[in-house]
Design a protein around this nucleic acid. Structure first.
Lengths: 337, 337
DNA sequence: ATCCGTTGTCGAAGCGGTTCAACACTGTAT
DNA sequence: ATACAGTGTTGAACCGCTTCGACAACGGAT
């Protein structure tokens, strides 16, 4: 291993000068800096991360705790992770990946491995919150727990998204709608996004005088069809369905087709999912895009603002935008938009 | 921060005793060990990772470079990552996640951040190989490059899988088959699994006197249908299709349906994908399972064998197994199995 | 000529662990 | 009684880097 002393010797300066040349925390003459840089290049020197972490109390690594299971929308998770990693890299940070199951992981990585943490898939009363509030490092939550206890949060505004979906469909003239939600397991965990979506959906239905039909939806094809049939049975004249389950979306669309309901003509489908998922369906689906990549990026930015100088807690909700595609349509004499 | 000295003081022993009690590298009397453990528990002490890494030249972290893009089978990647992380944790290792794009990442993390690396999605002439062979740490490749240069590799045996697929379908009496492969971009990169699948497929077709029809398949619905139509056009009497593209699978199945070919009766579909993907299709698809989780686990095990004492290079190919489900069937008078 | 503020560089003291050589005990063989 | 081989514990060196205080050299103001 080549060390900072090797570089210093080669450049004819002291180790501290090399350190300052690297960090820029002290002024260094152009000539000296050039010699140092030359020596670094020739030796292929890279500072030892552990030594640096020990001396500076910073690691330039952040922890991301993600739900690594195939039961929730895989592509949302992947996009989110991608957003975190790329944004972190652009700030010269690396990312340590923890699984949701690794309960002790938080305290472990907090002692000298990472400068901050991001927690995905936060539940209403998340066990991890009391743990991370005790840490020296800042934490950002993805999701809105009941009591964030002074932690900052980011998420997509699922409440607003649900309202937007209902309002949009209602304005198009649909009065009988149903929500096909995430798998029962997600609901039972009280993952906050699922709860907020439900709340928004029910509230907006109430506000517009509509019946809020809801069904949890398993991710397999048969489970998706079962959920579809359940809502179909409940309201025979159903003309619009909101799907918040990436895995089930394709099955719902083909299921409607098989049951003689043409998507985009007899029945409107509005999905909550990443744009590219909506686009690659058998018929392009009107969707409210879940900006997973952006959420990841925002989480990193909020986190990095809070490493170092403390910063007030903040909750950021990303506003929903609706992309009209081919699966929705005005029903009968169009109501004014 | 509570340090090892705090623990030592509280337990009435020296810091080195605490260290030995923790690592077990020296014998410690039961009484002393008990006092040390008590002190640790009372103080909630966790060793500082950086200090430990500096002193011991080990970090208990390994790097995983994964392709974070939605263009390849997302669930395969997720499963793979899951396998790596959980297996690593079971050996008390954490995982640092790098993106394929982060070219400088390998050398950066190699200087003191990680004890070993795993590279996914290796290409035939992968640029990263010359880099990692220079590192002090061991590396495991997922995939089989042209020249592994002494590195160990793990992967699914795509060659054998392709042969198995062809043989199986042929034995069932199918003589006109087609392969719907991964997206063109994957093929162009010469990701090794894609190449090996093609080779195996062509070789086995040749061995059995069949025409090897192949089509790269985009992941969107329309692209999948286009590929399907292309192979349908090339051989009108097609009775079997092998699909190695998780994202396109559903579209191919529904596409066949729409074109009046009943899957499992008129045309056989055999997929290469994780079991759960095959099972959750509209009709359970006969598949050769890609054991992504296992590959991840094996990669970690091979890697950990090689941290510390050097170990001979080795290439491990996981044998394919075929799961008969409802999408395949014997054609005409069944040929003997 | 003297004083002062800048600018550039350096030596040394940590950061919090691990590990080696040394040493104090104990119990057993001589 | 004496030597001897464990066993258990310790002090000190060291891992590679950052950072603080000190200081030399220089130019400009007095």
């Amino acid at each position: 291993m080549t060390t900072i002393d090797d570089v210093a010797r080669r450049a004819g300066v002291s180790a501290s000068t090399v350190s300052y040349a690297l960090s820029g925390k002290r002024t260094i003459s152009a000539a000296t800096r050039a010699r140092v840089e030359k020596a670094i290049a020739e030796l292929g020197y890279t500072p030892h991360a552990g030594a640096r972490a020990l001396a500076s109390a910073r690691t330039n690594v952040l922890a991301l705790m993600a739900p690594l299971r195939p039961d929730v929308d895989v592509s949302v998770i992947m996009q989110f992770v991608t957003g975190v990693v790329t944004k972190a890299r652009s700030h010269d940070y690396d990312v340590l990946l923890l699984t949701q199951e690794d309960a002790a992981g938080l305290s472990r990585v907090a002692s000298g491995m990472v400068d901050g943490l991001i927690l995905m898939d936060v539940e209403a009363k998340d066990q991890r919150i009391p743990v991370v509030t005790q840490l020296r490092q800042p934490t950002i939550l993805i999701g809105l727990p009941e009591d964030p206890q002074g932690l900052s949060c980011v998420d997509f505004d699922f409440d607003a998204a649900a309202r937007l979906a209902v309002r949009h469909l209602h304005r198009l003239g649909h009065t009988s709608l149903a929500l096909l939600g995430p798998p029962p397991a997600v609901l039972e965990r009280h993952t906050t996004y699922a709860d907020r979506l439900l709340t928004g959906y029910r509230a907006q239905c109430a506000a517009e005088g509509l019946q809020p039909v809801v069904e949890a939806t398993g991710s397999s094809h048969t489970a998706a069809l079962a959920a579809l049939d359940a809502v179909l049975a409940r309201s025979e004249q159903l003309t619009a369905v909101v799907v918040h389950n990436e895995a089930a979306l394709a099955s719902v669309v083909s299921g409607l087709h098989d049951r003689g309901r043409r998507v985009g003509e007899d029945v409107a489908v509005l999905a909550l999912c990443p744009a590219y998922v909506a686009e690659s369906q058998s018929i392009p689906i009107t969707s409210i895009d879940i900006p997973a990549l952006t959420i990841g990026e925002v989480a990193v930015e909020m986190l990095l603002e809070r490493t170092g100088a403390p910063h007030a807690a903040e909750t950021r909700l990303l506003a929903p935008t609706l992309h009209e595609r081919q699966s929705t349509f005005p029903l009968e004499p169009p109501v004014l938009t």
